[in-house]
Design a protein around this nucleic acid. Sequence first.
DNA 1: CCTCCAAACGCAAAGAATTTGCTTTTAGCG
DNA 2: CGCTAAAAGCAAATTCTTTGCGTTTGGAGG
Lengths: 186, 186
Amino acid sequence: MAEREGGPRPGGRSARVQASVHRATRDLLSRMDRAAVTIPLIAAEAGVTPSTIYRRWGELNELLADVAVERLRPDMVPVETGSGRGDLLAWAEQYAEEMASGIGREMIRDVLAAEGETGPRRCCGYARQQVAVIAERAVARGEAFPEIDMILDRVIAPIIYRILFDEALATERVGALVGNAFSACA
Amino acid sequence: MAEREGGPRPGGRSARVQASVHRATRDLLSRMDRAAVTIPLIAAEAGVTPSTIYRRWGELNELLADVAVERLRPDMVPVETGSGRGDLLAWAEQYAEEMASGIGREMIRDVLAAEGETGPRRCCGYARQQVAVIAERAVARGEAFPEIDMILDRVIAPIIYRILFDEALATERVGALVGNAFSACA
DNA sequence: CCTCCAAACGCAAAGAATTTGCTTTTAGCG
DNA sequence: CGCTAAAAGCAAATTCTTTGCGTTTGGAGG
């Protein structure tokens, strides 16, 4: 294990402050309109001074992005259905649904609104990891499975693009995307 | 023609203010770091008072999104190459390049950061229109051409998703995306 | 165990942005 | 030519953001 990205050493004061600020942010976001959430508010809720937050995160966007990336991190391994294709379909349907939800869309926007590109990269990496787990299991079973980048282009990209720019895809259409991803491999 | 979205009647004071604020915003964005651009600055540059901007746009994000959508509106018809597929390839390559550029990425982010979803919808609509023009020409020539939604899912979505979350696609890879879009139709 | 150090926080004042009530200007219309 | 509604200007009040400085904290080395 090289580095924790969240903050300094696990038990220190820094880590406690970060944890309480994250929690306060999530609480406020769930309680009130996001436009009404400000750094002084979060600071009060978290029991720290605003300057602490300003110094650590710089601006509200960065903090929101940080919290959103944290929440977008997958917390379970993809369910096993017996086949790689089934696994991918189940995972993609759940992914599409989560991301299309109100909270999901807000988190994506928060991640994209922050300055650096590390947030979006991390999110993409999370999806990639999950797909990689499914792919490895499939390969271990001797199945053919598309390249990860193929899944990104043909399944994940359309799901996210529609959510961001158009209208969320109906769940049924995810199946077609998965089918398309497999059509070029097996 | 039903309504102009930009603002009230074409010649009025409102329209002049909007035009000068838009111009001032573009100027400032090209001159300085985007983090340094503030509403009072834009107001001074445009020769209006900050409260005018606050009342009209609400916050900086909305104004930036407004300006970005304006700039993302296509200003030419897609070039004709002789075939629908060639037209689409040429258009998609240029689209990918423009969107992947620094200014392009910033505009996309601005559009997504605004509150409503009308900005993203408009951008998606612009792309859709351009593709529709290409499709109509192809059909008029008697060629087979994929559904517009197919182009969205297989060409545009991957291009934009990579730009936002991963790394911009190399131009060569756009050709493969276009090929994939056609593979299911002809 | 004690002392020292750097990093991080709290506090508070200064500076900048945002909101708002009221007044004035403007463009369109009878 | 006035009237009117919409939009802009102005300025005060509020809120957010930045910053300098002193204090606390947790860890490292003696």
